[in-house]
Amino acid sequence: MIKFLDLHKINKRFEPQFHDKFQQFLNSNNYVLGSEVDLFEKEFATYCGTKYCIGVSSGLEALHLILEAYKILGKLAEGDEVIVPANTYIATILAVSHKGLKPILVEPSLQTYNIDATKVESVITHKTKAILGVHLYGYLYNVKELERISKKYNLLLIEDAAQAHGAVNSDGRKAGNVSNAAAFSFYPTKNLGALGEAGAITTNDSELAKVVYKLRNYGRKTSYENDYKGYNCRLDEIQAALLRVKLNYLDDDNKRRQENAKYYLSNINAKNIVLPYYENLKEHVFHLFVVRSKTRDSLKDYLFKNGIETFVHYPIPTHKQNAYKEFNKESYPITEQIHQEVLSLPINQLLEICEVEKIIDVVSNYK
């Protein structure tokens, strides 16, 4: 069986370095917000090209803290509208709801699966204060257009970059540096994955960074002075240490994913399967290689029977979830079509060429 993602195999490459890092961590006598977090923040900010990186406990908490900080700074207020893609993992929209803001769902492009920038302006009202874009599956959203719109209407532009570590815009800026602030997840399955929960915020905004640094740590100014009603959502010291090891290999791993994707796209020949699209390969780091089929469930079963594990990202759109009953009667037909048809094939950086060839052969023979 070709696994969709073998995390043990991916992380075993770093086992000697992980052992060294753990021993250093154990001997440091500084287990919370120590030197490893500080160094990772500096290194990841440099990698993304931003002035600041603040390590936090997860991608969802990264979104929470960005929105909360903007409320503290007076740039967002309870009841403000935030434009979000209808086609995304629920965490993006949860963050907006949790902060007392109103998510305004916009349909995606059926070509890129990212928010359709041509549909954004039509939903902007006097209550709209931000656009929260998602680089879905590892493909940058339409940076040029969302930046133009956000500047035209004086809106905050926020990135959910949870799946796009290392993606590069046409002007050379990386994911995490094409907005006012960005949220990253380092969940173990990500292109840059921890060995547990972890996340980060990147930004060039010094005022935002100052607030977020405090918010993640009980809102503390000093050990016993609290400026804000903060949270405990700090990046774990050991996870920062392990992420520092893996960050050195991220570009090479992304390149391998991109090579696998190019090979798939050049060789899969199946008339009834829609393959992913991209304009500039650097803009897509292929966190997922997502195909579409009107007989998705049949395709999934067929591939499993032929020794290929796949996943559906994601079977139920947010507006159809029980958690969002207020949206259940709304219609987002493109989003619904995508969720009914998508299937993710193995794409990770450690696939053997024989495995890639088998996947191409089996998919191409699907009738």
Rank of each mutant, 00 (worst) to 15 (best):
K367V: 10
N114E: 12
I201W: 02
G196H: 02
S266W: 03
V168G: 06
N154R: 07
Y224F: 11
P85R: 00
L275I: 06
D20T: 12
A200Y: 04
A270C: 15
D20Q: 15
I149H: 12
D253H: 11
A270G: 01
L235M: 14
F327G: 07
T50Y: 00
Q163I: 08
D20I: 09
Y332M: 08
Y31I: 05
H98N: 10
A117K: 05
Y213N: 15
E225D: 12
Q258Y: 04
Q24S: 11
F40T: 02
A182D: 02
D205T: 08
E159F: 07
I54Q: 10
K51L: 06
E41M: 12
F327R: 02
K246C: 03
E207R: 05
R148V: 04
K190R: 13
A194Y: 01
H284E: 07
T335Y: 09
A45D: 14
A130I: 08
H165E: 11
I273S: 01
L350S: 10
N267M: 02
E36P: 01
D171G: 08
Y218E: 13
L345E: 09
K102Q: 12
I72H: 06
G49Y: 03
F186K: 00
Q340Y: 08
N29Q: 15
D301S: 14
D205R: 04
G59K: 13
I90K: 12
T125E: 08
Y89W: 07
G34Y: 01
E330M: 15
K151W: 03
A200F: 02
I268M: 07
Y218K: 14
D205I: 07
A194T: 04
